[in-house]
Nucleic acid binder design. Sequence first.
DNA 1: GTCCTTATCT
DNA 2: GAGATAAGGA
Length: 265
Amino acid sequence: MLELHRRFVEAVEQLSVDEAVPSRILELMGIHCLTRHNIASHLQKYRSHRKHSLAREAEAASWSQRRQTYGGDGGGGGGGGGGGSKNIMSPWVVASPTIGFPPMRPLQHFRPLHVWGHPSMDPSLIHIWPKHLLPSPSPPPPPPPAAPWAHPTTHPSPPRPLLDSSFWHLHYQRHKRFGTPTVPGIPPNDAMYRLNPGIGVPPRLTGPHPPFDFHPSKESIDAAIGDALSKPWLPLPLGLKPPSLDSVLGELQLHGIPKIPLNCA
DNA sequence: GTCCTTATCT
DNA sequence: GAGATAAGGA
């Protein structure tokens, strides 16, 4: 069924999302056991997902812009070492930590309609895909990289499986002590993930607030962003709570790795 | 009558 | 949340 969804997405992308209609999709998919109604229904859900996904990206971009307009002092004081020294700062600066909101650059990587940069669509992207997400049978998943802003001066944690909950838990415990800043208008525990650019979304550097380093140096921000854009990122929770497996899968699903079953009757 | 989209139901 | 179905419009 995952294969069916992949073919569905390929067909939609081929037609362009706006011109994709059930009959044409069905034609391109070449699956005879599906009806036009099946496709129409799936298309409806697909568009709905996409709409929500785009809305979220827009919101992230808007936050980034707002930060640049009102909060962009660029620096702050303290080194990125996660030192935890909480300076007295204006409420706005505290509420919108610089490091959570990169410059507009990541949006250049936003390719919402490209079928998620999947190697099956674009073999040139194969190198940035995690091996376990490649279409062909593959070795076990690589370890998730550490967040550069979490440990700007240190190096990635020991290899852990992507969906190993103990990894998330460790991550959570390690950064818990930094407290729970709040941002007006954004749910406090809105988990943030950094997604693989190969999945077709910008690296998710945006979000409410990293829990661990509120005042990184400009250099550490640039380094973090550069790092993020150059690596095959796996979903990485930066929220205060480790996400459930379901929420990670849900996030992946939003970006083209479906949980949506598409079955032949 | 056919096809698509949207809303609603299961 | 996802698939099926009904309703309305082009």
